[in-house]
Amino acid sequence: MEQQGQNKSLGADFFMLGFSTNATLQSLFFALFLAMHLITLSGHLAIVVITLVDPALYTPMYFFLRNLSFIEVCYTLVIVPKMLANLLAKSRRVPLTACAAQMYFFIALGGAECFLLAVMSYDRYVAICNPLRYTLIMSRNLCMRLLVVACASGFTISLGLTMLIFSLPFCGSHDINHFFCDIPPVLYLACSDTHFNEVAVFLVCMMILLIPFLLILISYAFIANSIFRIKCSEGRKKAFSTCFAHLIVAVLHYGCAIFIYIRPKASYSLEQDKVVSLIYTNVTPMLYPMIYSLRNKEVRGAFWRIWERKFPSTKN
């Protein structure tokens, strides 16, 4: 009977609790998050188009930036549309297979982004510390291979972790106290011993989060050393500006993720985690295009060149 109950639980649906049951608050949340989502998509798609269209941006730096923006678009599409639908839906039922698929793509794309941010720090390291050999080292072939490794690593690791979590029996409450199928709230619902799974999640998060973040910090230590050796203040300023945007994005992304996934279980708070998750799935992806474009003269210049080609000004 116990085995039958566990097997039955594997096919059961989940129910997403979301943010609030108040209809007015749900409508306000829907309008706010929809506006943020549209801004996020517009910003990242603009970066993808600009870096594809303008030949001046056919460099390794913008190749990685374009793919980072594409990953961010997919990343937000995995989470936000379903979250918006749940804000308006009377029933927030989520089939187990759909929950597993959402978790898989969320971890896969998040992991690919983590590895890609580390690759981008290596690109900046080569550009500043070995400028004369930059084009030789960062060849198109190497850039493609680094991109494939970053994405393949994220998707491969995610598959094993998702299978490990959804192999557990869920025979108690199926109410997920979250707005998407994240690891901690789903793991919280398991009705068997989850110690092994928690250790596995911790080790995977160490691999996806801490190791790339440490590599980024090491890269920027070398970069800072090289920048301080530049005698020309204008040269130092230019070198610093090319790294500042990437460093801010890395700190925001890794900081929120490390807070959620790498800390003792005793300090877990599903309500607190929900707020932090809202920041790194909705707020920070919206800020990334602004951070990159507003501080980057090349991106702004490419935008205006494309704009003038499409909408030429009439001169008398």
Rank of each mutant, 00 (worst) to 15 (best):
F33R: 10
V276Q: 05
Y188F: 04
L203T: 05
P212H: 11
A31I: 13
Y125D: 00
I223M: 00
A302N: 04
V49I: 15
Y220M: 04
A250V: 02
G110D: 02
H253P: 02
P81K: 00
F196N: 10
A85Q: 14
D182E: 10
L65D: 00
D193S: 10
I211K: 06
A224E: 10
T314V: 14
P81A: 00
C143L: 06
L217E: 04
T51H: 00
P184M: 04
I216H: 09
I248E: 07
I128V: 07
L209D: 04
I223Q: 05
I79Y: 00
F166L: 06
L32P: 00
G301D: 14
K265F: 10
T156D: 00
F105V: 05
F213K: 01
V73W: 00
T76Q: 03
P81F: 03
M207E: 14
D273S: 12
H178Q: 14
M163R: 15
A221W: 13
F29V: 05
E234C: 08
T314R: 15
L96V: 07
L147Y: 12
K315S: 11
P264L: 01
S233F: 04
R229F: 05
A112V: 01
K315N: 12
N141M: 10
R93P: 01
A108Y: 01
H246W: 10
Y134S: 12
L41W: 08
V251T: 08
T162S: 12
K238W: 12
I128T: 03
V275C: 04
D175G: 07
F30M: 06
V148Y: 02
N7D: 11
V186S: 04
N316I: 13
L215F: 12
T314E: 11
A31R: 08
G301S: 13
L25A: 08
D193L: 03
R66Y: 03
N7I: 00
W307L: 13
T314L: 14
A150V: 02
L65G: 00
Q3A: 15
K315T: 14
T76I: 09
Q6Y: 09
I176G: 02
C129R: 02
P55Y: 07
F303I: 13
V199P: 00
V276H: 06
R133C: 07
L84D: 02
F166M: 06
F105M: 06
C143D: 12
F240Q: 10
G5F: 11
P212L: 10
Q272S: 14
S167E: 08
A23L: 11
T281Q: 06
F63W: 11
L117I: 15
I128P: 00
T194K: 04
Y188D: 14
Y220K: 06
L65R: 08
R145E: 12
P131A: 03
K310D: 10
A302F: 02
E298H: 14
Y134H: 13
C256H: 07
R300N: 13
D13M: 00
L45M: 10
Y288A: 06
I183Y: 05
F222D: 06
I248G: 03
I223P: 03
Y280V: 11
L209N: 11
S192D: 07
C171R: 09
L117C: 10
I107G: 05
L142M: 06
S91N: 15
C99S: 15
M207L: 15
F303S: 12
